[in-house]
Simulated scan of single mutants.
Amino acid sequence: MRARVLGTVAVTVLTLAGSVLAQAIPASAARHRPAASSADLPAHALVGYLHASFANGSGYLPISQVSDSWDVIDLAFGAASSPTSGQISFTRCPASECPNRESDADFLAGIDAKRAAGKKVLLSIGGANGEVRLTTTAARDAFVDSVSAIIDRWHLDGVDLDFENQSLSLNTGDDDLTHPTTPAIVNLIDAVEALKARYGNGFVLTAAPETFFVQLGYQFYGPGPNGTSDPRSGAWLPVLYALRDDLTLLTVQDYNSGPIMGLDDQYHTMGGADFHIAMTDMLLAGFPVADGAHHAFPPLRPDQVAIGAPADAYAGNGYVPPATLDDALDCLTKGSSCGSYQPRGGAHADLRGLMTWSINWDAYSGNEFADNFDSYFG
């Protein structure tokens, strides 16, 4: 995701070599409580980020003016007071940057109105500039308490985890995604489980990692046996594995990415339907991690997966026009228009939908992304 800058910045990905043969893996009373179950999402959902704490070049959009097309609204962003404090705050965009922002009272009323209409409104934590590393149990506990306070203050349905850049990495020797030992990984898992326990089944949990932290794990996992790989490689995988039963949606960012090897052992590059198909298929089919000797990442349910794409060319590298995105959806949901890549995980009509950065950029570009979603899914 992008924060406080206009334009696009590509995430640097190391040049990688080698491959492995992929096989599809078989398949408190006074506290605010989210009212609706996470299962109350529509069969096909549209997820978008709302610039709530900054303008980001596309302009501020009051939440009451967000189109009804959006089923999940992620308020961007909650940020840490320091990377390792665990203390998260949510500060609304200042009037100097967002002169048309609504009052706090109107903002809260807008959230309540969206939720009354069946929409989910979440706090998105992190972003491109928001490093969060829960390296201690004290940071873990501060995270739980401070995030809970924000959820309660603004009547939110849950959280979106948008941990990027240096937020997650694996320590040397932490090579089993089913039993992670890196403190920042373990503490994040514990913190999210504590939030889910505090708020119950209505708590909505989404995550929007970059491909570097998920699909790259097919080739490389953490620093590797020789300590020569980037320790962030695949670092989201143990978190997703541990929280797979609590995860409402995974919306990997299929943008701002370097080439990533798919299950066909070929590199796939963003900017076409092929990239979205190959990256999403990895989530639906599952994949062996690193050289295949250290467990596998199991497939997610199709209803847990939404494709992440930029709303327009200003929003991020890897933008594709609606017709190209429709080709990817045709392949993944109907088994048609697949081009050279045939999904190992098959076609899934119940794929949940789409995510975009961002609602603001889509409004700036005439609502092309949302209108296409409505047209495609009816």
Rank of each mutant, 00 (worst) to 15 (best):
G59W: 00
A138R: 07
D152W: 05
P180I: 08
G86H: 02
S67T: 09
T136I: 08
A17T: 14
I260W: 01
A328D: 05
F143Y: 09
D326T: 12
Y49Q: 00
M261H: 05
T333F: 04
D40V: 05
P299L: 04
R244P: 03
M279R: 15
W361C: 02
N56Q: 11
D141S: 14
A306H: 05
R140W: 01
I25K: 13
G200H: 03
V147C: 05
D145Y: 02
F212T: 08
P231N: 08
G224R: 08
M282Q: 15
N165I: 13
D157E: 14
V144G: 11
A27F: 10
Q266A: 14
L122H: 13
I359R: 03
M261L: 04
L216M: 08
L240A: 10
D174L: 06
P298Q: 09
L263D: 06
V186N: 11
D106V: 00
D326C: 04
I260K: 04
L46I: 13
T15E: 14
H294A: 12
D112L: 10
A293S: 15
A117E: 15
A52P: 01
D176A: 09
P302C: 11
A142S: 14
D145W: 00
D330S: 09
L156I: 09
L351G: 06
W70Q: 13
A116Q: 15
A142K: 08
P231K: 08
G378P: 05
